[in-house]
Write a protein that binds this DNA or RNA. Structure first.
Lengths: 226, 226
DNA sequence: AGACTTTTGTGATATCTATCACATTTTTCT
DNA sequence: AGAAAAATGTGATAGATATCACAAAAGTCT
């Protein structure tokens, strides 16, 4: 296992900034950096969970097989930890993680990660904070998915891409229509219809994957009321 | 603030079993035990989050206002921690917690809880494990809610009550029809129709809130396939 | 460049569940 | 015990979205 220089890494996590030089060294000795192309699998569902993954750069989707079809659980943007719940909470990976664009990730052995949790309370605390904030985010996200109709569900996610992922009202969607359907729990035909309707109402402008939000205020209203 | 004797408490959490006598004493000095009747509010949404709650005995529901109606996020049975994500992850309580039967809870000041996290890695680790397992549970629960139709959604929850809460195929539902509708995201009329259909098919026998699962295998099949 | 595969858009129809209304039953309060 | 309120069950109808089919457009590979 190659030795990564975590101390000098400019993309390390907020949590690891709490670690001493010796702790960073321990981390580096048990850490491997890997590059991924779009579509490649970073972590696979139903395999043994032996590593914590830290996403240095890129964008990924967390997916799981549901009763009827694949479900996109969440989309995460670097920098962030991936697979923490499934590695610490179970022996088997409960979901897969797929790169949505070129990405770079570091794999850390679970034993080393647990050791760092024990010897650095500040590190442990930051990780716990992240878990707590993630849970609150999941509650909000799923309640909106469950209670809104499909216009509201699509609007919510378009706003998420704009505000949280790209920081812009104009961007290339990282998902095809079928994947968007997996994200908002509908069919790909319905996604097409919604994009057509939003375009006709001058709420968005879309050409293939390139999208521009024309009436963000209206999207916010649709997102809120469903 | 009265001094609770946490050291001698027979209902303390697995996590606190890692604490030394001095740490338990610190906990006890900043801990208040309160009893609740069914329907009473243990933690209220949109109030300041200043306490961690440990449920010693009883059963509770976590609820939040959604775009259309109240959503039951989760039902939790003692012994367990409540409100961890919302107290550590935000300054405001993101959801309410209501007793579904007579319950006893201990309120711990967040500052003391954080202190214990810092001084006891084993305690911290157990709390983190709990957060991770909870997140996995939420993923499974919400994916089934999102993808199954209403028969599957009701079946899943009846099995949850039977297997995880009551450990019996015969029990009193802790929720009325409207609350069950809040749990599985449907209308109270639909809940009535489903109970009627399941009764007609000899899958369950229900009289008011008293229910007996007659064909658990069938419920499992419906839960799986929706 | 062209063939092949994948993705997308739209029309038509079917299915599922919400909503509304109302009556009945059960529970709560005095 | 009786009145009032809340909860429940059922019927009828409306609305939302899935499904199926098919054609067209876009992307990939050789």
């Amino acid at each position: 296992m190659t030795n990564e220089n975590c101390a000098s890494c400019l993309l390390k996590s907020k949590a690891t900034k709490n670690l001493k030089a010796s702790e960073l060294n321990l981390l580096g000795e048990n850490c491997v950096q890997v590059s991924f192309d779009k579509g490649e699998t970073i972590l696979k569902q139903n395999t043994l969970s032996t590593n914590i993954v830290y996403l240095k750069t890129g964008l990924v989707k967390l997916i799981a097989d549901g009763p009827k079809r694949t479900q996109i659980l969440k989309i995460k943007k670097a920098p962030c930890y991936l697979g923490l719940p499934t590695t610490m909470g179970d022996k088997i990976n409960n979901y897969s993680i797929i790169a949505l664009e070129k990405s770079v990730a570091c794999y850390v052995e679970i034993k080393v990660f647990k050791e760092l949790l024990k010897i650095s309370p500040e590190f442990s605390y930051e990780i716990m904070l992240d878990l707590c904030q993630n849970e609150l985010f999941l509650y909000k996200r799923f309640v909106k998915l469950l209670q809104n109709q499909i216009y509201g569900r699509l609007a919510t996610n378009l706003l998420f891409f704009s505000n949280e992922i790209y920081g812009s009202d104009e961007f290339d969607l990282p998902l095809n229509r079928n994947e968007i359907a997996d994200l908002i729990c509908t069919s790909r035909e319905t996604v097409s219809r919604l994009f057509t309707d939003f375009s006709k109402d001058n709420i968005i402008k879309i050409e293939g994957k390139h999208i521009k939000l024309l009436n963000k205020r209206k999207l916010e209203e649709i997102s809120k009321n469903g």
